[in-house]
Structures are given as C-alpha cells and as structure tokens.
C-alpha cells in the first residue's frame, strides 16, 4: 500500500480538521469514515440521489462528486452543523419534526441541506421553488409532501422570528 497521501485542512462545522488522504478518497467518505461525521449519507455515489449533500462555502453540493483533497482550504457544513451550538434544533430541523418531513431518515440530511440553502436565499419560497430546490434529492419514504410542508412551516416561523 503505497498510495500517495495528500494533506487536507478543511473547516468543518466551524472547526478546522486536518488529515492526510489518498487522492481518490471522496469527500463524503472522508467526512464519514475519517471524521466520523456519519450524518451525511451515501446513496448512489454517482451524483443523482442527493443524500450526500453538504454545504461547501455556503452552497449545497454533492459530496460524492468531490474528492476530499479538493476541499482543502474550504468550509463545509454538514447536517451535524445545522443546529445551534447549544444542541438545539434549528428552525428547519424542528419543522421537519413538526411536519414529520421524514420517515427512515436516510435522505433527510440531504433534504435539510438543500432546503436550508433555499431558505438562506429565498425566505418566502413558493411550493414550486421548494420542489425545485429539493428536486435533486430523492426520497423514497415521503412522496415529498410532508417535506414541502416542513420547509413552508420553517419559512413561516423564520419570518415570524424576524418580526
């Protein structure tokens, strides 16, 4: 085993993380297997299902379609970083619980990342905008209805908070 290792330093959920990785290690495998941030899931490894969605420098991307070494010097937020540092659920996370916007929980981290990214730029999204935002994330349990409801609920609550 003499695969060359490359140093990577990434700010993950606000904390700098540094390891040595083989070039071919995908970002999602690095997060899961090396950093043990297992909230981000692997569904297809070819960029269709969206279960591995994370935020890279604030924008949602598929972490199965990046190599860990490419993330060097960037900032990443995973589902583990969506809640408050006090362990409290974010408004979106809480809304997913309230509207039961999930069942098995496997696609959920990707759905949360995709819909949080939407809410960051579009505080009052229409149903069509919500569907478009989660359109790259497959869910087999919910038929998407309660996910759409959860995102709408979160938007309403966030708007009320701002008042």
């Amino acid at each position: 085993m003499n695969e060359k290792l490359y140093p990577v330093t990434v700010e993950v959920n606000g904390k700098p993380r540094s390891t040595q990785v083989p070039a071919r290690l995908s970002l999602v495998d690095w997060l899961r297997e090396e950093l043990r941030l297992t909230g981000t899931h692997v569904g297809c490894e070819h960029g269709i299902c969206g279960a591995c969605s994370i935020m890279l420098d604030g924008e949602p991307v598929r972490s199965c379609l990046m190599f860990a070494v490419q993330a060097d010097g960037h900032k990443i937020t995973t589902v583990e970083g969506l809640g408050g540092t006090d362990g409290k659920l974010s408004v979106l996370q809480d809304s997913f619980c309230e509207a039961h916007g999930l069942q098995c929980g496997y696609c959920t981290p990707g759905m949360l990342i995709a819909s949080q990214a939407l809410l960051n730029t579009t505080p009052d999204p229409s149903e069509a905008q919500i569907r478009d935002a989660i359109g790259g994330n497959l869910c087999r349990c919910t038929g998407y209805r309660q996910i759409v409801d959860a995102v709408k609920l979160a938007a309403t609550r966030l708007a009320a908070q701002k008042k």
């Binding site: 969206g50 969605s53 890279l56 949602p60 598929r62 990214a117 939407l118 790259g136």
Partner: peptide, 8 residues
C-alpha cells in the same frame, strides 16, 4: 441538472 450540480 439541479441546484447542487449547478453550484459545482
């Protein structure tokens, strides 16, 4: 594609 693929 989708939001995530257009971002990258």
């Amino acid at each position: 594609g989708h939001v995530q693929t257009r971002n990258r």
